[in-house]
Amino acid sequence: MHRSKKINKKLLLKAFEKIITIRIIEEKIAKKSRENKIWSFLHLSIGQEASAVGVAAATNNSDLFFGNHRSHAHYLAKNGNLEKMMMEIFGDERGCCKGFGGSMHMLDKSVNFMGSIPILGSAISIASGMAMGEKLKKNKNIVVVFVGDGAAEEGSFYETINMAGLYKLPLLVILEDNKYAVESSHEKRKVKNYNFSKLFKDGMQTIYKRVDGQNFVKVLKTTELLKSSIIKENKVGILHCDCIRFSKHSGATISIQDQESKYRYKNEHIQIKKKDPIDILFKYIVQNNYFKKEDLEKIKKKNIFQTSKKFEFIFNKIPIRKI
């Protein structure tokens, strides 16, 4: 069974390094933004890296990804080109969208990251078309689309789940539920006892699973299961990841003031400390004897150092316009 299968050591290490890389890159981007060196809107994935990396690790290189406004993590998890991503964010014409898109438009077709768009609810139906393309071409790939809990309130979301089910499309929807649409919580937006499971499983006949989105291993194993079910059963899959957004909705703020602010749930700042995806994966690797704690610490430090160096190297290539 998938669940009991031991995870490959190399895969775990790669995922650990990837999560750290994404974190460091985004923290550095945020810092530059606070120094007014970014000419673009910014939506950070900090805190939500495990769902992106877990899904990427469970899928094939040939599977297609499509993202949303908060897609730096999805792009990097799919091995999107870092230099081109940074250039796009910093407003350089050598960026992944030649400077026309900005931070909300990530694209690297060479690794099958097919784009990201910031209009909520649009991404899922476009991804369903890409999935239909794969089906008509008789490819065995699935299409993975990342949506937030806000986008999952759009009519287009429900329309697409039904339509993709009707056409039996190989579509995997990753619902990254960080509980907030900008700063509006579930309670303000959803009917009491809103039931995702009954709606999607019984109502719309999808294969629906809900996991702790902060936990790489859980995301990985559940995505593997979902992918094989999508192909075997010809049904749409939904992976509902409960995530925590460490940053504000937009901009470069990652602060205790924001994490303790009134729009957030009570004691969320404590949860943020407890549920950092890096720490959760660190513990898993050590507790399951893949690496000794000291060795993993060294790997972490080395990765932080190398990523920082790489960031600075790329950053120095970009002529920055002072805002």
Partner: peptide, 21 residues
């Protein structure tokens, strides 16, 4: 045949168009 879901079915066509159809 599409469902009465103009937004989703249009998005589906956009997605298909980006994939060579």
């Amino acid at each position: 045949e599409t469902p009465v879901s103009e937004l989703a079915s249009t998005g589906l066509c956009v997605g298909l168009a980006t994939r060579g159809f």
